[in-house]
């Protein structure tokens, strides 16, 4: 399989360097509560991890494969609900419930994806949205199982795993850090694998991929299932932290927010969506403190970024760096960043 047009990222493709960076990130995140012991910062970061996984996994579809899913939150919610329900049953441990949540969500994504990935462009977006609305209505209607609009009530128990007591806020935070970093590394590996490059080719030129004998539908389905599974881990983290699962997790606004995180951060860089997540969460956190008219502020900031920078924040920085490098060494050929506009 021939790799598609190579896009240079901040991270080189070497596994070793990825791992080194991951370890460094792990150390930094673990050190944060030691340096700044305020619980609010830990809380903020746990939300960042949960929504970051949602946005990062969605970008595997949007940025990597060119599949604009409007219904990604369905898998986020399915992770939270499967995990929460299993834990409330009191029969399984946290790791088992997590694995079941991921596995169950993967099956759900497989069934829905098998129908959706055959559709193109905006029609793919709409049908994923339709399935998400369907799943949301199941959660709201099936009151006996899910608690309906009131959500899973009564808290999610956190029995100790191998002597780790997750009821302790610091241990919970540490666990979330490890899970988050492992998931990001996993997504990075998929994106840098031959499979990942095949997906880029499908995004940039599906006809060519088809001629080369790539089973486009199967490849798309593969990444759809993987992205769904990764989103479910985000859901598990959130459920574990807020000690509940709510139908709002599966509402279209949650999917919309994930898309905005990607757009605000940028989708050219692997970690771009995390920049967007950080931006949106930080804005949300501070603006809500100052004013109840946060919509007015957030809307204006989005307009400024879109109309001023004309791209996501990380993409802007990336292009700026590329420009500078190009000006310094005019002889070196610079790969033109492909700005793709999707016809609707």
């Amino acid at each position: 399989m021939r790799p598609g047009p190579l896009r240079s990222g901040l991270l080189p493709s070497g596994l070793l360097r990825d791992l080194a960076l991951a370890l460094a990130a792990l150390a930094v995140f673990l050190a944060v509560p030691v340096v700044f012991p305020q619980p609010a910062l830990r809380d903020f970061l746990i939300y960042f991890f949960a929504y970051g996984l949602l946005a990062m996994s969605l970008n595997l579809l949007v940025g990597l494969t060119g599949l604009v899913s409007f219904g990604h939150a369905a898998y986020f919610a399915s992770g939270a609900y499967v995990f929460g329900l299993l834990m409330q049953s009191g029969r399984v441990s946290i790791p088992v419930a997590t694995l079941a949540a991921v596995g169950g969500t993967a099956i759900l994504a497989l069934v829905i994806g098998a129908i959706c990935v055959r559709l193109k462009e905006i029609y793919f977006s709409f049908i994923t949205l339709a399935f998400q609305m369907f799943i949301h209505s199941i959660i709201v209607t099936w009151v006996g199982l899910t608690g309906g609009d009131q959500g899973l009530r009564g808290g999610i128990p956190r029995p100790p795993i191998l002597g780790l007591d997750l009821n302790d806020a610091r241990t919970l935070y540490g666990t979330c850090v490890v899970v988050f970093v492992v998931c990001i590394v996993a997504m990075r590996q998929v994106s840098q694998s031959p499979f990942g490059y095949t997906l880029r080719m499908i995004r940039d030129n599906p006809a060519r991929a088809n001629f080369l004998g790539v089973n486009v539908v199967l490849m798309k389905l593969g990444i759809f299932v993987f992205a769904g599974a990764m989103a479910s881990i985000g859901g598990v983290l959130l459920a574990l932290f807020v000690s509940g699962a709510y139908p709002e997790f599966a509402f279209w606004t949650t999917s919309g927010e994930a898309i905005f995180m990607i757009m605000l951060g940028g989708m050219k860089l692997f970690l771009g969506p995390l920049v967007g997540t950080l931006l949106l969460q930080t804005l949300n956190h501070f603006v809500t403190i100052y004013t109840e008219y946060h919509g007015l502020v957030l809307g204006s900031v989005i307009l400024l970024i879109v109309l001023g920078l004309r791209r996501g924040l990380a993409d802007y920085l990336y292009d700026w760096l590329q420009d500078r490098r190009a000006r310094r060494a005019p002889s070196a050929p610079v790969p033109e960043p492909v700005v793709k506009s999707r016809p609707v």
């Binding site: 757009m263 008219y293 919509g295 879109v306």
Partner: peptide, 12 residues
């Protein structure tokens, strides 16, 4: 994204 910003601004 632009439309979403508009919705937020108009609602508020």
């Amino acid at each position: 994204l632009v439309c979403y910003a508009m919705i937020l601004i108009l609602d508020d």
